[in-house]
Design a protein around this nucleic acid. Structure first.
Lengths: 238, 238
DNA sequence: CGTGCTTTTGAATAGTATCAAGGCCGGTGG
DNA sequence: CCACCGGCCTTGATACTATTCAAAAGCACG
């Protein structure tokens, strides 16, 4: 973690919610924010620490985890540029989640006191954040259904699609991120062995290819089918 | 579904978010809202219908479902007095979830156009809604972890605790709601047979008692233990 | 007093987690 | 440059758990 100083007034991140504030407020935030560079693997938030504000991701990739059964980690959410970490709403409480940088990440921090003033004076900012939460909620509701009902094959397909959605593919159809099998298992809600077996099956079916640890997506539509098949049952919809 | 007319100015629901608006706005909402009584089992929202606004639960019990694998229903959330249905943020889209009354329920509906004006003119309303979403998000994140990692025993314990949290127990320690085994299965993310088997086990362990379809909670702390044991591993926390 | 629905139980089957062992790869030090 | 080490990946065998199917019992309702 190393302190840096990119001003909000020159910041090029178009998705940052702070941009929803008025120009004079952006200046105030500029003076009050803390900006740090986190190295790959570094903790941004530790589970159980007191909540002091919200983290805004300028650039980077972050995994949000909670510790569960037998100390197993579950990846609850993946976040990148423009996303936030540490939801508003539990001052005096502790973070129920931890956040770890998956790549070197530049992250701005705004403390609770400043945030409260921002909400009061910038309705558009509050509104945008409300919409963000609303969307996240909707996504999680879908994910709950998936994780609860899917078998391993479907879970792995869903995890891959989730990774594509968040981080995207490069020009060679390669996943723009390098996760351990264990990390993928923590997204899908199973263990590393199951992930490997299923990836091998997908490889045999020519849906993906493996290049070392990297995963190349050959037929994304096939992954979609595995999930869609699950979602669309028009004959059942009343 | 039958139209009723309780004015917001005399409404006694303390949790309703509309109360966060200014008095003049409450009058405007009063003129623009639609209030209906839904009978037990009636659909409030149908999966796939266009989104037109937000539903505010005055009184009642509602299950929020999505249709998944092989047409199985997953109960994503349970809602009661003061909660809302149909998240803001997908105008022009269709509801990804359905909502069904579990008891006779009185529900107010406000359409998108009115809502947008409310957000613009009532920052406190927007802020309150943002906080609500933030809390819901946090709860769902915990639930995701649970559902993904728990075995049947733990899932059933969690489902029972969830029911207690939302609907509470009456003076005889009876669950304040009557769900089918299938409904409980749709919360826990398994099937009705597993629920029955596990309820029988809990009964033998004197953790619960069954009175017909009703469930009596004898030792809630034992249910907590089953879940807590899962959450607390201090030796592992870094 | 049937009829249909939900609950309950049992048995067979399929699926998943766990354990163990070997392979691969990158990094380190000789 | 090579040999070794440790970590992650991979695969197989096994034990366990959950799902499915089938059938009986209980219950509500007309």
């Amino acid at each position: 973690m190393r302190k840096t100083t990119i001003s909000c007034t020159t910041c090029k991140n178009r998705h940052c919610f702070i941009k929803q504030c008025s120009p004079e407020w952006i200046n105030i935030i500029d003076d009050n924010k803390n900006q740090n560079n986190y190295k790959k693997g570094e903790h941004i938030i530790r589970e159980g620490n007191p909540v002091q504000g919200i983290y805004f991701i300028h650039t980077g990739k972050v995994k949000v985890i909670t510790t569960g059964l037998n100390g197993k980690h579950q990846i609850v959410r993946l976040a990148n540029d423009g996303h936030i970490l540490g939801h508003k709403g539990f001052e005096g409480d502790v973070y129920p989640i931890g956040a770890i940088a998956m790549d070197d990440s530049l992250i701005c921090f705004v403390e609770n006191e400043t945030l409260d003033d921002m909400f009061m004076s910038n309705p558009k900012f509050t509104y945008t954040l409300m919409m963000f939460y609303s969307h996240e909620l909707r996504k999680l509701e879908q994910r709950i259904k998936n994780i609860a009902q899917m078998n391993t094959r479907e879970k792995v397909a869903e995890a891959l699609l989730y990774l594509i959605e968040i981080f995207g593919l490069d020009e060679h159809q390669e996943l723009n991120t390098l996760l351990s099998r264990e990390d993928i298992a923590a997204i899908a809600g199973t263990n590393a062995e199951q992930i490997i077996r299923q990836l091998t099956i997908f490889e045999n079916e020519k849906i993906i290819a493996k290049k070392g640890k990297k995963i190349i997506i050959l037929k994304q539509e096939e992954l979609n089918k595995i999930i869609r098949k699950v979602n669309l049952h028009p004959e059942i919809r009343s």
